[in-house]
């Protein structure tokens, strides 16, 4: 199988200085006093991994270990400080609850906007609209502003939009855990459908059972380093007995 995602030696550093310089005035004052400091924080350290087309790849790790940062690098939202990440094909990123949603707009308007943000056409989204609402089971809330939705409902809508047109790569960050168990089952079924269609899926989840049910390969991140990388069983067993 050819690779769908190639990540090569990625290091991601953030500037963590407490007093960020964000005005010309401060910049000159600090420059004159020679106080322009940069405190760096390394969220990812030399991460390399190749993910095959059609693989379902899980990422586990404690809070703050760099999982979301990794997903953002892969989806092109963050540019790594060093190294590179390459993807082949269309990407649907579900990085955060309601990514690309405008909470003041209705579900109908948001489906359209979100589709456009993902690079689809208006026509395409109009055709798929009913199907999306049906999958999310939000028929009664089509013209309600999103700020009046529960977080699970927002997650449903987000997942429905992102998976309605089979993407080549689907990226899911924990959002599945907000839905109720029925919807979680439905999402897992949809993911399995996508797998059968050669979609590459990247999942971050704190539910180790979910990872065990869905994934073929797993990466364990620890303080930004790859602690372990390999097939699901080996890594999950090691992670659980940590």
């Amino acid at each position: 199988m050819p690779n769908a995602i190639e990540v090569n030696n990625v290091t991601m550093k953030f500037n963590m200085s407490k007093d960020k310089v964000d005005s010309i005035k401060e910049y000159f004052i600090k420059m004159c006093k020679r106080q322009l400091r940069f405190e760096e924080f390394t969220a990812l350290q030399n991460v390399s991994v190749n993910i095959e087309k059609g693989d379902v790849f899980g990422i586990v790790g404690l809070n703050g270990s760099g999982k979301s940062t990794f997903l953002k690098v892969v989806s092109g939202i963050l540019k790594p400080t060093e190294g590179w990440a390459k993807t082949y094909g269309t990407i649907s990123p579900l990085i955060e609850l309601g990514a690309g949603f405008d909470m003041d707009l209705t579900a109908r308007e948001n489906v359209l906007l979100n589709g456009l943000v993902l690079g689809y056409t208006k026509k395409h989204m109009k055709e798929k609209f009913d199907e999306i609402i049906e999958f999310a089971e939000l028929q009664d809330f089509v013209d309600v502003a999103l700020k009046n939705f529960s977080s699970g409902m927002v997650a449903r809508l987000g997942f429905a939009v992102a998976t309605i047109t089979k993407p080549d790569i689907l990226i899911v960050d924990e959002i599945l855990s907000v839905g109720d168990f029925l919807f979680q089952q439905k999402c897992e079924e949809r993911i399995k459908e996508l797998m059968a269609n050669d979609t590459t899926v990247l999942i971050v989840s704190h539910s180790i059972e979910q990872i065990e049910r869905l994934c073929k390969h797993v990466m364990w991140l620890d303080h930004g380093n790859v602690k372990m990388l390999g097939d699901m069983k080996t890594v999950c067993d090691a992670y659980k007995s940590m």
Binding site: S75, G76, I77, I91, P93, I95, E96, A99, G100, V117, L118
Partner: peptide, 8 residues
């Protein structure tokens, strides 16, 4: 909010 969550 968009820049942080999706590639654009």
């Amino acid at each position: 909010s968009l820049i942080k969550k999706v590639y654009l």
